[in-house]
């Protein structure tokens, strides 16, 4: 089923929220890191993996999800969190290490947990698969039509956890969807140098489940593929494996010299930017107007500004709070 006008506008707003949030973080991240770049200094210390360019996979999938569905993401997870409806202010505050953050400053950018929105992620490659299986198992036990989505990069499909989880999910017919973001690079190693077959979706055959390759970094293509898989899962027909071709605009992390990547690759990718293409398509189809989309973008600008401002102004946790919350 094609998305409604309302859904299209929401997808556009989410796409811009993600893009602008990541671009804002890229700037803030460099504060206090010059003249000499020290990863542990500045407003935001530590590694920073940004998802700009990868908006379609998150937005196109989460358009089908409700509050009770679960999303488990990766070390590069801001786009998933935003698309799942995680509060942008609390998320920004967590990334800034502030008391008001999702995890009161204990998790940081790679470890965002929002049980209310049923969102979590992990800094460990391949860790999302089993956890999503567990959420799907819980839904099944509770006899609900909720689903769980595990997102992971194409590099993660070479982890044992991927294969164990696909087998388990297929065996138990769990309502889980495994979505591989193929951004072509596992840090610096090209997919062709790490993976024995061209498409991870082919691996679904080994577990007797549908495997779908989405060849274009495109919101509507992802929307269609994910919609079908999620509907299958909701109807008790078990898991699906989807691989989506997507593009990573930034380096693996900010500060990545990207010596492994052709110099003009990102430039040419941006020339066919998925947000612009999405907007052109839905305007051309007469589904929305330019003015409507501009309004969504304005809303996103405001939300990102407010979130960064909120994070900046929020207090740091007291040092002694480091000793709290080891146990519930």
């Amino acid at each position: 089923m094609a998305p409604s006008t309302e859904q299209l506008l929401e997808m556009d707003r989410q796409a811009w929220t993600i893009r602008l949030f990541e671009e804002a973080l890229a700037q803030v991240y460099m504060e206090g890191k010059s003249p000499a770049f020290d990863i542990g200094s500045g407003t935001i210390p530590g590694e920073m993996h940004l998802s700009a360019g990868q908006e379609p996979v998150a937005v196109g999938t989460c358009a089908h999800l409700g509050q009770e569905d679960t999303v488990v993401g990766t070390h590069r997870a801001h786009h998933f969190a935003i698309a799942k409806g995680v509060d942008l202010k609390e998320m920004a505050a967590e990334i800034f290490g502030k008391e008001t953050g999702l995890g009161k400053g204990k998790g940081g950018h790679m470890h965002l947990f929002d049980p209310k929105r049923k969102f979590s992620c992990s800094g460990i490659v391949g860790a999302s698969f089993p956890v999503a299986c567990g959420a799907a198992l819980a839904a099944k036990k509770k006899e609900k039509d909720w689903v769980a989505v595990a997102f992971a990069g194409e590099g993660a499909a070479n982890e044992g956890s991927f294969h164990e989880s696909l087998n388990l999910a297929a065996l138990w017919k769990l309502p889980v969807i495994f979505i591989i973001e193929d951004n072509a690079w596992a840090i610096s190693v090209a997919k062709s140098k790490s993976t024995a077959i061209p498409y991870n979706s082919q691996r679904a055959v080994a577990y007797g489940i549908p495997g779908v390759r989405v060849e274009k970094n495109d919101f509507l293509s992802v929307y269609d593929a994910a919609g079908e898989a999620i509907a299958r899962a909701r109807h008790g027909e078990g898991p699906t494996l989807i691989e989506v071709k997507t593009d990573r605009y930034f380096g693996h992390f900010i500060g990545d010299p990207e010596l492994y990547r052709p110099k003009d690759e990102v430039k040419s990718l941006k020339a066919a930017d998925p947000i612009g293409q999405f907007e052109q398509t839905i305007i051309a189809k007469g589904l929305v107007s330019r003015a409507q989309l501009d309004k969504e973008r304005e809303t996103a600008v405001k939300a990102v500004d407010e979130a960064i401002e909120f994070a900046r102004k929020s207090p740091y946790p007291k040092s002694e709070e480091a000793l709290e919350h080891v146990f519930a």
């Binding site: 049980p115 956890v131 567990g134 839904a139 509770k142 164990e164 989880s165 388990l168």
Partner: peptide
């Protein structure tokens, strides 16, 4: 897979 699934199920 199944110990990770325990974490996921417990979260729910």
């Amino acid at each position: 897979a199944f110990i990770g699934a325990a974490t996921g199920a417990a979260a729910e």
